[in-house]
């Protein structure tokens, strides 16, 4: 079995006439948590949306499990992944129904839903909120529900897009502490976009640095901190 879940080669994305992202090569290894870091507007979220097939690349190749991603339909592909955005984007339903949503889309049986939803609500510490209306949650609670909604799908690839940046620091710290063992124990391959290096180091083993619309460097955090590949990366890491 291939070590890499995702391999991207020569990816190019253009919006209007502007090149918004260029990636020569990027691999995401099975079971790892990879942080995609870089300043705001560098193209991090573009990469994430491309991986969720919510954005069509202008050029390049994307392999999922060793096979070209284009070989499967958007919906079939997206049912292997799960996406959590910066805002929880919960629906005006109960917490339970929100978490059951993705399973329903996949045609899961009622018994499967009844088994998995409470389990993941519990794992994220929001079991007691199951019957509450989603719009009556605090920011931290809502983001926990949003994570449960993604993790309950047991996705092959979890995509997190600045998912903690809207939370206040103490709430964020506790959530990161809770999430880390969950991702590790479930061996969920995770791609995690953030502009916060501290957050990246806490959750991820490897990092990919995107600066000025291109992927510059990928490797273990220490490697990158010790040897930034160019001045832009060094500048972003605060090592001028």
């Amino acid at each position: 079995m291939n070590k890499d879940l995702i391999t991207i080669k020569n990816l190019l994305i253009i919006r209007g006439k502007k090149e918004v992202l260029r990636v020569k090569k990027l691999s995401v290894q099975r079971g790892e948590v990879l942080a995609v870091v870089g300043p705001n507007g560098a193209g991090k979220s573009t990469l994430l949306l491309t991986l969720a097939r919510l954005l069509e690349p202008n050029a390049g190749q994307m392999l999922f499990n060793g096979t070209p991603a284009q070989n499967t339909s958007d919906t079939v592909y997206r049912r292997k992944i799960a996406l959590v955005m910066q805002d929880p984007l919960l629906f005006d339903l109960s917490v339970y129904k929100n978490v059951a949503l993705g399973l329903e889309f996949r045609g899961a049986s009622k018994s499967e839903i009844q088994e998995k939803v409470p389990l993941w609500l519990k794992r994220l510490g929001v079991a007691d909120l199951a019957e509450r209306r989603a719009k009556r949650l605090s920011g931290g609670e809502a983001q926990r529900v949003s994570l449960a909604r993604a993790l309950v799908l047991e996705p092959e690839l979890l995509l997190l897009d600045e998912s903690f940046s809207a939370l206040d620091p103490p709430t964020r710290a506790t959530l990161l502490d809770d999430l880390k063992p969950l991702l590790k124990n479930s061996k969920t391959t995770t791609l995690f976009v953030t502009h916060d290096l501290h957050e990246a180091r806490k959750l991820a083993t490897r990092m990919a640095v995107i600066v000025k619309n291109s992927l510059r460097q990928i490797g273990y955090a220490d490697e990158i901190f010790n040897a930034p590949v160019d001045e832009d990366v060094a500048h972003f890491l605060g090592k001028d």
């Binding site: 949306l49 969720a52 919510l54 958007d74 919906t75 997206r78 049912r79 992944i81 799960a82 996406l83 959590v84 955005m85 984007l89 949503l101 993705g102 889309f105 996949r106 909604r149 993604a150 799908l153 995509l159």
Partner: peptide, 8 residues
Amino acid sequence: LQLYGLGA
């Protein structure tokens, strides 16, 4: 986007 991202 969120709905598609959940596999809808």
